[in-house]
């Protein structure tokens, strides 16, 4: 985790630092460059700052102000407290439901992803290319197009509104990325490791789970967390397929679009988001562009 952001790593690894024109600190070009960097950073941070304002500033300075002040005149915890009040707010039950679903999505991603990625790393180029292309296409299918026809078989199978049902649909978003990430991890292992284990008498399954899988634990953790995050954010399947208990994003959506005080939703979700933001920063290391491109570069 200490290796630094992947953006930095990916860019820095292959290429020596760009040739510098001397060691002049404050050339005009330098100042201009930093001005662009600061302006971009401010623009990227602004919406997060707005979420913070909505969450912790009294509402007459935010949504009930025509041109709301950018510097908060006062801070409050009322929004958050209302959101956490068990008796009145649906947020905590929704959060548990979302946690359950996200956990399932992570587990299923690994359960299907590990054998698939192993298989792909051992298949001939042509077949592997075909399978990755299929996974890639799955990633691009519109959720809403899939969610509507699937309601009927889901109701029949008793999956409608259940954590497992929603998890199985959200998996469509998580599985392709999991597979791409794990294929990379398996390909990074020397082929001899598996051969050795099998010469020593281990069956293929034992060779995989006893000798290979322990070596890619970091990639497994990263895939699990990524799958978890995809699910935590997903709201299209969750909106179409919930029956009585909505997930957290759907509860927030329903709250901010008319049922109840929207700021309560924002305050609660902002606090619930903080761990995900931290997770994103940690996962940065594993979010590598190569993983998204496995599917087509073959």
């Amino acid at each position: 985790m200490s290796a630094g952001p992947p953006l930095a790593v990916a860019a820095g690894e292959e290429r020596p630092p760009a040739p510098r024109r001397g060691r002049k600190r404050w050339t005009l070009a330098n100042v201009g460059f930093y001005a662009v960097v600061v302006a971009l950073s401010a623009a990227l941070l602004f919406p997060i700052y707005v979420i913070f304002l909505l969450a912790f500033v009294p509402d007459h300075y935010t949504i009930f102000s025509f041109v709301p002040p950018l510097i908060p005149p006062a801070l409050t915890l009322t929004n958050l407290e209302t959101g956490l009040a068990l008796s009145t707010a649906p947020f905590l039950p929704s959060m548990y439901f979302s946690l359950e679903i996200a956990f399932l999505v992570g587990v299923i991603a690994l359960a299907i992803g590990i054998p698939t990625a192993y298989g792909l790393s051992r298949l001939s180029r042509g077949i592997a290319y075909a399978v990755t292309t299929v996974m890639f296409i799955v990633n691009m299918l519109p959720s809403i197009v899939i969610a509507i026809p699937i309601t009927v078989p889901f109701i029949k199978a008793g999956l409608y509104g259940s954590a497992l049902g929603i998890a199985l649909t959200q998996e469509l978003l998580a599985l392709p990325v999991t597979v791409f990430l794990l294929v990379g991890a398996f390909q990074g292992l020397p082929r001899d490791l598996e051969n050795q284990a099998r010469v020593d008498g281990a069956g293929r399954i034992r060779a995989i789970f006893g000798n290979l899988v322990p070596l890619i634990v970091p990639a497994l953790a990263a895939s699990f967390l990524l799958a978890w995050m995809f699910s935590w954010d997903e709201s299209t399947f969750a909106l179409i397929l919930y029956s009585t208990n909505p997930t957290l994003p759907v509860t927030i959506f329903l709250t901010v679009t008319g049922r109840g005080n929207p700021l309560v939703g924002v305050a609660f979700s902002f606090v619930a988001t903080v761990p995900v933001i931290i997770l994103t920063v940690i996962l940065q290391k594993y979010l590598k562009g190569e993983d998204f491109t496995v599917g087509v570069r073959g």
């Binding site: 952001p5 953006l7 971009l40 950073s41 990227l44 941070l45 919406p47 997060i48 979420i51 995050m229 935590w232 954010d233 709201s235 994003p249 759907v250 927030i252 959506f253 901010v256 924002v266 979700s269 902002f270 988001t273 995900v276 933001i277 931290i278 997770l279 994103t280 920063v281 940065q284 979010l287």
Partner: peptide, 12 residues
């Protein structure tokens, strides 16, 4: 900073 928006829920 550039990667932070990924961590913010779409609904929020």
């Amino acid at each position: 900073i550039a990667i932070l928006p990924i961590g913010i829920s779409t609904v929020v």
